[in-house]
Design a protein around this nucleic acid. Structure first.
Lengths: 351, 351
DNA sequence: GTTAGCATTCCAGGTATGAGAGTGCTAATC
DNA sequence: GATTAGCACTCTCATACCTGGAATGCTAAC
């Protein structure tokens, strides 16, 4: 019963492939279970419904199609979508309309956060689904510059800039004179410019440990700043942009589920984890993950189409579209991939 | 027909008031239209259903109650909610449970943006509705400090801090040497510290206009920075936090409407306008606006419970809860008012 | 002024019923 | 042997219909 995946004419004959594709595409278009008659009509070689029924029956056995109930048409399973996406030729070019929208929206952006914010918006617009973009603070980012400014009795503004244009500001509760702050900033800028955040922190830890006995005023200031998180530009302080959640209303019928789904999308950490789980620096092009239930139960029927955002070879963040399995894959994939490339271009150009 | 608001025993007799309140409260509790029998049971003076029917009939005429259909109970109109809220004693004290949640969440916050972000979250949590908080950039904010840092060939980081702790950073496309930038920053800090953003800008405009002929290097730098928006910390660059939109799923049955609603909540400018329209510095305490359809058609059945966020007498932003008419007014009002007061306290303390 | 009683209205929910769509199987056909 | 026509069967969905329940408004009695 289970091992009928191997059909008479090889693992998946030409006809099977064609019919499966047709089912997926019509289901995406209409949202209704598709029956043999419908397919027979749109089939170019004039196959009869009966023949198609036989093939569909095979595909059901193979776990690629399923029926909501006995006498309904068939809908694709997650497995079918995976197969469908896999055999999509990656050659499709982006429509000039989409290209315009994207160009207009990302024109003149110069820092990562802004890029991400606009990207989430434009992705949701183009895909008519949820657009997501995150900037990973990036412990592997290179430090460009830090700056401290005393604000009041107890407050210090810390600004941190990385080579790749991530700016992070935070107000700390500290009482240091502006002189001390300037000295500390100078010390850090002179010693650690160009270091990755990660290596800077370990080195700093080491020095603080080692020279504990012979602390001078400077190192004391640096330590205080460091302990208060002035130099943290990484995981804890990410920028997460999610837009177009409203588009999910159409897709999910169960209100309970819908609510949970929207709640999940509001929890930024979840989103970060999700993208983190599926996207990494090394991957080529766009990745499509069908069925997110493994990562998040409330996202059972959803699909992630995402790509890493890189500058040079460096991972700066991720961008993705989240939507129902029933979506326009080709369209969305080209858009995501286009923006990912654009990211590299735009942020490289003026570095 | 229209002018029956004046009842035999004055504009609104004691009994009418009591019954109206009872209707509103039971409707808020159950969500079902409330009938005369239900009220008769819970009424302390043992009024019979028939009597209550008579009163309810009067209230219907007065436009305070309405029936979904002939043989159903009655539900309050917007007008009834307004009346109900008006006669709520503002004396209720915040529950210690809420107080804890709020305190925990806002502990140790030191800048406005962070406060607003957490506030929107905690408000949505407590009210089980949509929590909103915005920081108006505030052209009336006093300048504390500016700082410019050259990042690369074409990029300049501009950081602007106001007295009240709003930090705004942006990356500009400019090509100025660090020397020029430092000079410009020094010039602005020395001349304009403590000025409101607004007055600073007009004065700057004036000077640039006047001294156009005798421009030196310094003023040229300042002008470039200014034109690129380095000193804009106002309306165009607000921080808007909206959380708990998922909570609306339960309230709105019409999916079309729900979707529009969620879309609206994603458009930050709409939110800014909305709060701007109803909340201002001068108002005492919490304002409750019932029926937002005037401002936003998609928010027909929604209620805004909001207050300005002030430091000293200065308006720094707004915070509010948005939810269906059927919500716990008392509870939400105390929470909003509590946080508004807390805002002043926390941000005043270390100035 | 208040209340009991009653006819009336309307909805919500349950049960038939029939049309429609699709399937699987068998037997005939190419 | 693959393909197809035909047919009995299954299941859903929409419609119509019925019934019980919950309120109401009105009238007459208290």
């Amino acid at each position: 019963m289970a091992e009928i995946r191997c059909m008479p004419s090889g693992p998946m004959g030409e006809r099977e492939r064609e019919i499966l594709t047709a089912v997926v595409e019509t289901f995406i278009a209409t949202g209704e279970p598709v029956g043999s008659r419908t397919l027979a009509r749109s089939n170019r070689e004039g196959l009869s419904p009966a023949t198609i029924r036989n093939v569909m029956s095979d595909l059901s056995e193979a776990g690629l199609l399923e029926q909501p109930h006995t006498s309904a048409g068939r809908i694709p399973t997650a497995e079918a979508y995976r197969y469908y996406v896999e055999q999509l030729t990656g050659t499709a070019h982006i429509s000039s309309q989409d290209q315009n929208i994207i160009q207009d929206s990302l024109q003149g952006v110069s820092d990562v956060q802004e890029f991400m914010e606009r990207t989430s918006h434009v992705l949701s617009l183009i895909s008519r689904n949820v657009g997501v973009a995150i900037a990973v603070g990036g412990s592997k980012n290179a430090l460009e510059h830090v700056y401290f400014q005393r604000l009041g009795d107890q407050k210090v503004l810390a600004v941190l800039v990385t080579k790749s244009g991530v700016v992070r500001d935070r107000v700390l509760r500290l009482d240091l004179s502006q002189q001390n702050l300037d000295a500390a900033a100078r010390f850090i800028n002179e010693n650690f410019r160009g270091w990755t955040m990660e290596s800077m922190r370990t080195e700093l830890e080491r020095r603080l440990e080692q020279e504990r006995s012979e602390y001078d005023n400077l190192m004391r200031s640096v330590e205080q700043l460091y302990r208060q998180g002035a130099l943290a530009a990484d995981e804890t302080t990410q920028a997460v942009y999610v837009e177009g959640a409203a588009n999910l209303v159409t897709g999910e019928k169960d209100r309970q589920r819908l609510q949970e789904l929207l709640k999940t999308l509001e929890e930024k950490q979840r989103i970060v984890d999700l993208l983190g789980a599926y996207l990494d620096v090394k991957q080529e092009a766009v990745r499509v993950v069908i069925g997110l239930d493994q990562a998040l139960p409330s996202m059972r029927n959803l699909v992630l189409i995402g790509a890493p955002a890189r500058v040079g070879g460096e991972m700066m963040g991720s961008l993705a579209v989240i939507g129902p399995t029933r979506m326009d894959y080709q369209h969305t994939m080209t858009a995501v991939s286009y923006i990912a490339r654009l990211f590299d271009q735009i942020l490289n150009e003026s570095e």
